[in-house]
Design a protein around this nucleic acid. Structure first.
Lengths: 116, 116
DNA sequence: TCTTGACTTAGAGTATAGTCTAAGTAGTAT
DNA sequence: ATACTACTTAGACTATACTCTAAGTCAAGA
C-alpha cells in the first residue's frame, strides 16, 4: 500500500502520467481507500515496472494496451501476445541498429572536430 | 539537379517532410528553377543525409537547427558545436543502453512464452 | 473551526513532428 | 484549346504522450 506520490518518486514518473496510464488501461484499476485515494499494491508496481521498461524501449501506449488487453483476456490469447512481442522485438532491434549507426557517425563527427 | 520527388524516393521521406525541414532551416534554402520548382544539389543531399541520420538517432529538430545555425555562422562557433554534439552523444548513449536493457527484457519475456 | 496540503476528477492545453488541404501555376499530352 | 499531372504556398489538422487547470474532497494540525 503505497501512495501515488511515493510511486511517482520511486519510478521518476509524474503523478499525472500514472493517472494517465491508468486511464489508458496500461495499469490498474488501482484500489482506492474510502476517501478515493489510490493505494498501489505490489502487483501494481510490477505492472508499472513492465510498462515503464517497454515505454523506454519505444513501445507505444497503443501497443502496450493491446498486449495487456490480451493478457487480461486469459490463456487462449497467448499466441497473439507472443506474436505481438516478436513483432515489437523485431522493430526494436531495427531501431537499436539504426541508433548504433547514428552513434558511430556522431562519434566520427566529434573526432573530426577534436582533431582540427 | 534532382527533383523533390526523386529525393523523396531516394531517402524514403515524404515531400512534405522535405519542405518542412527546409522551413525549419535544417536544409536549404534549396535552389529553384524559373518556375519555382526545387532543384536539389549534391551539397543539399549531403545535408539531408546528415539530418536524416541524426533524426534517426533521436536528435530533435530544435537541436539540429541549433547546430546547423552555428555551423552556418562560421569557424568561431566550433567549440559550441562540439559541446552540443558531445552532449547529444551522451544522451544517445544513455538511450541506447536503456533500449538494450529493454530489448533483453523483451527477449526474456518471449522466451518464457516459448517455453510454456 | 479554519487553514493547509495532498489528493480527486474531467477536460483543456502543450510539444513535437510531421501530414493534409485548398488554391494556384507550369509544362506536357491529346 | 483543354485536360492532366506534378509542382508551389500558407496554414489548418493530426497523432502521440503527456501536462496543466479548475473545482472539489478529505484528513490533520494550529
Amino acid at each position: 500500500m503505497i501512495t501515488i506520490c511515493e510511486v511517482s518518486m520511486k519510478y521518476h514518473i509524474s503523478k499525472d502520467a500514472l493517472r494517465f496510464y491508468e486511464k489508458e488501461k496500461l495499469i490498474g484499476p488501482i484500489r482506492k481507500n474510502k476517501s478515493g485515494i489510490r493505494e498501489y499494491q505490489d502487483s501494481d508496481l510490477e505492472r508499472i515496472e513492465f510498462v515503464l521498461c517497454m515505454r523506454s524501449a519505444g513501445l507505444s501506449i497503443a501497443v502496450l494496451r493491446k498486449y495487456l488487453e490480451l493478457y487480461d483476456k486469459g490463456d487462449n490469447t497467448k499466441e497473439m501476445r507472443l506474436n505481438l512481442l516478436l513483432n515489437e522485438k523485431k522493430k526494436l532491434k531495427e531501431k537499436i541498429k539504426c541508433m548504433n549507426d547514428a552513434f558511430k557517425k556522431l562519434e566520427y563527427k566529434i573526432k573530426l572536430y577534436q582533431e582540427s
